[in-house]
Amino acid sequence: MSNSALLKSSLAKKYWMSITGLFLILFLVGHLAGNIPLMFEINKDTAHGFNQYAKFMSENPLVQIVAWIVKIAIIFHAVDGVLLTMQNQKARPVKYKVENANANSSWFSRSMMPMGLLIFAFVTIHLVNFWAKMHYGDIPTYKMHGEEYTDLYTVVMKFFGKDDLAILWIAIYILGMVALSFHLIHGFASAFQSVGLRHKKYTPIIEKVGYAFAIIVPLIFALIPIVIHIRVNG
């Protein structure tokens, strides 16, 4: 392998950005699939089903390994992004006084860093809200078929439904998903270009799929707290 070219060079930083980004896109799909049931009928079965899923996710050793990879990927993606941005700013110390950037590039492609920061802030809030509560918080438990379950379902319902700040939390979650959507509109297809995956036939398809993904996935995520709030209070 050449002299740390795969760690230090400008292109290498983009490879890592791309690989971690694509991995986090896969994570989004899994995370969405696991949480969609929260939107449906509230009864004892769905509640227990969700708690079973939560128990599986926090106990299965394979899931634990993947969960750590996700956390490392998020930190790597963020740190790499900050390093890239710092280098990029150093590359143009004197800015243009008049710049018509909209003539040649999209706002989304130029806003990866600010959107990334918003997403990072959102992920931190989200982890404090649920992950920290699940692992370190005081959550009621119940027993079923001789096994103990943490009642995360009730915590989620209260949080988005009955909490004093429920509306504020929902607004923060919607904002987080808007930032994620804007980030993905450019990020999805860009990740392919960064590792050289560009093809006359396939790139237009990747771009279309990326655009659809960037809108549909964050939209469904954003609907979850809204639907919960309406169901709990309706």
């Binding site: 400008s10 930083k13 280098q87 990029n88 950037a101 492609s109 130029r110 450019h186 960064s194």
Partner: peptide, 22 residues
């Protein structure tokens, strides 16, 4: 060439596509 490019202080690619247009 990439090593030299980095050494000269050029920035990284964000795939905005502005270069291709201009």
């Amino acid at each position: 060439m990439v090593e030299k490019m980095d050494e000269e202080g050029f920035g990284n690619c964000s795939n905005t596509g502005a270069c291709e247009i201009e």
